[in-house]
Amino acid sequence: MKKQHKNNWVKIFFAIFFVFGLGAAVLVFSSESSENENQVEKENTSKISFVNKENSEQKNILDSLNTLKAAYDIAILEKTALSQELELERKNVENLMEIIKASQNPSAAQIKIFRNQLSDMNSSLEGKVVEIKKLKSQNKNLLTEIESQNVVMYNQKAENDTLISKQKKLESTLKDASKLSLSNFKVIALREKSSGAELETTKAKNTKKLKAIFTVNGNAVAKTGRRIFYVQVLDQKNNVLGDNKLIEFGNDKALVYSFIVSTDFQGKSVNVYGILNDQFKKGTYFVNFFDKQEIMGSASITLE
Rank of each mutant, 00 (worst) to 15 (best):
E94F: 07
L82I: 06
E89I: 02
L118H: 02
T67H: 10
Y72V: 03
T80P: 14
Q117M: 06
P106Y: 04
K69L: 13
A81F: 00
I113Q: 12
Q104L: 05
A70D: 14
N66Y: 04
K59T: 13
A81R: 02
D73Y: 03
K79A: 10
I113S: 12
K101M: 10
M97Y: 05
V93W: 00
I111Q: 01
S103M: 02
T67Q: 12
R115G: 05
L82W: 05
D63I: 10
L88I: 12
K101I: 14
T67C: 06
S107I: 01
S64I: 01
N92D: 15
I99D: 13
Q110A: 09
L62C: 05
L62V: 09
T80F: 01
P106F: 04
N105M: 15
N105W: 12
I74S: 09
A109R: 06
M97Q: 13
Y72R: 00
A102R: 06
Q117A: 09
A71I: 02
E94A: 09
D120Q: 13
K59A: 14
A102M: 12
A108K: 05
K59D: 11
T80S: 11
V93G: 04
N105T: 12
A109Q: 08
L77Y: 09
T67V: 10
Q117S: 11
N105R: 04
I113V: 14
